[in-house]
C-alpha cells in the first residue's frame, strides 16, 4: 500500500491542444518542462506542472513521432513521418537544421549527453548518427545491421542502444567497437534504460515488457498484463528504478514492481491507446500521452 501511495496515479493536469493523436510526451532534462508531439504535425512545449502550453513548433510535414531535448534545454530534435530529423532551437522556434537521409519514417531520436550528435532510428532498418556541431549534412555513421525497423533508441555515454522489430536490442559500444545483439525473439517496440544504466527495459509486441541485464544479456524479469500488440507504446522505469511503467493499448497504464513483476497499480489513464509514458527524472510525476489527443500529468 505504501508503495502505491508513492506512485503518481492521480491526474494533476490534462494538457489539451493537440489535434489528433499525441505520439510522444517527453520531459526535459530537469523535468520542469515537457515536449509533446503528435499527428497534427506540431511539437508543443508545456509546463506540465502548471498545465500551460508554452509554445507550438510547426514545421513538420507529417506526423511527429519523437522528440528529445538537449540537456541544456537550448535545442531539441524531432522526427517523424517526413523522413527527416529536425534540429530546433527552443527559444526561437526555428528549425536549425534538417537531417535528411533516412529512407523511411523516423521512429525515434535522441541526443547524446553532450548534445553533439543526434541518433535517429528509422523504418529503413538503420540508426543514423547526425552531427550537430559541424554543418555536415551527411550522417556521421549509419548503423544498418538491423533486420527490421528500428523502433527505439537510447544513448549512454559510450553506447548506442537500439531496439528493433527484428526482435533484437543491439548495443553498440564505441569504446571497444563491439555490437552486442540481444535477441528477444519478439519485436521490440520500445526500449528504456534504467537509471543506474545496468538494465534495459524492452517493450515487446507480444504484450510483454522484458528487463534485460545489459552486461550479460540475461533476461531478468518479464512484465505482463498490458496490451501491446500493434501500436508503438512506450514503457519506462520510474526514477527510483523501483517500478516499471507501461502503457497499454486499451488506455490503461500499468505499474509493476520491478523485482517481483507484480502489477502494483493499474488505472485508466486514457480512453484510447496510451502511446507514451515519461517519468519525471526526480519527482514522482508522470506524463502519459494518448491517441485521444490528450496528455495527462500524473502525480501522487
Amino acid at each position: 500500500m505504501s508503495a502505491t501511495a508513492e506512485l503518481p496515479t492521480k491526474e494533476a493536469h490534462v494538457l489539451k491542444g493537440h489535434e489528433g493523436a499525441v505520439l510522444a510526451a517527453r520531459f526535459n532534462g530537469d523535468g520542469n518542462y515537457a515536449l509533446t508531439c503528435g499527428k497534427d504535425r506540431t511539437i508543443r512545449l508545456w509546463n506540465p506542472h502548471r498545465g500551460i502550453l508554452i509554445k507550438t513548433y510547426k514545421s513538420h510535414g507529417r506526423e511527429v513521432r519523437d522528440v528529445h531535448v538537449t540537456s541544456d534545454n537550448a535545442k531539441f530534435c524531432s522526427c517523424g513521418g517526413d523522413r527527416q530529423v529536425y534540429y530546433w532551437d527552443v527559444s526561437t522556434g526555428r528549425v536549425i537544421r534538417k537531417f535528411r537521409g533516412h529512407d523511411g519514417e523516423v521512429n525515434a531520436v535522441k541526443f547524446n549527453d553532450s548534445s553533439a550528435v543526434v541518433v535517429s532510428a528509422g523504418f529503413d532498418r538503420s540508426l543514423r548518427v547526425w552531427d550537430c556541431r559541424s554543418h555536415s549534412v551527411e550522417p556521421v555513421q549509419v548503423i544498418d545491421t538491423f533486420l527490421d525497423t528500428v523502433m527505439s533508441v537510447i544513448l549512454t555515454k559510450t553506447e548506442i542502444i537500439g531496439g528493433s522489430v527484428d526482435g533484437t536490442v543491439r548495443t553498440f559500444d564505441m569504446r571497444i567497437g563491439r555490437e552486442m545483439s540481444d535477441n528477444l525473439g519478439q519485436p521490440v517496440n520500445c526500449i528504456s534504460l534504467s537509471n543506474d544504466g545496468n538494465c534495459v527495459l524492452a517493450g515487446c509486441l507480444d504484450s510483454t515488457l522484458r528487463l534485460l541485464d545489459r552486461t550479460t544479456g540475461e533476461l531478468l524479469q518479464v512484465y505482463k498484463g498490458h496490451i501491446s500488440k500493434s501500436f508503438k507504446t512506450d514503457c519506462c522505469l520510474t526514477n527510483s528504478d523501483a517500478h516499471v511503467v507501461g502503457g497499454s493499448e486499451d488506455g490503461l497504464v500499468l505499474i509493476w514492481d520491478l523485482v517481483d513483476a507484480k502489477v502494483v497499480s493499474k488505472f485508466r489513464a486514457h480512453d484510447l491507446v496510451v502511446t507514451s509514458v515519461s517519468y519525471h527524472p526526480k519527482e514522482d510525476c508522470m506524463l502519459t500521452s494518448s491517441v485521444d489527443g490528450t496528455v495527462r500529468v500524473w502525480k501522487k
Binding site: 549527453d113 553533439a116 556521421v140 559510450t158 563491439r178 545483439s181 535477441n183
Partner: peptide, 22 residues
Amino acid sequence: TYPKREEFQWRPAPLLCKRFDL
C-alpha cells in the same frame, strides 16, 4: 533460448567517437 546474445565487431566512425569524447 531468449534472450540470445551475440557479439559482432562494430566499427564506430572516428567522428562519432570524437563527438562522444571517446
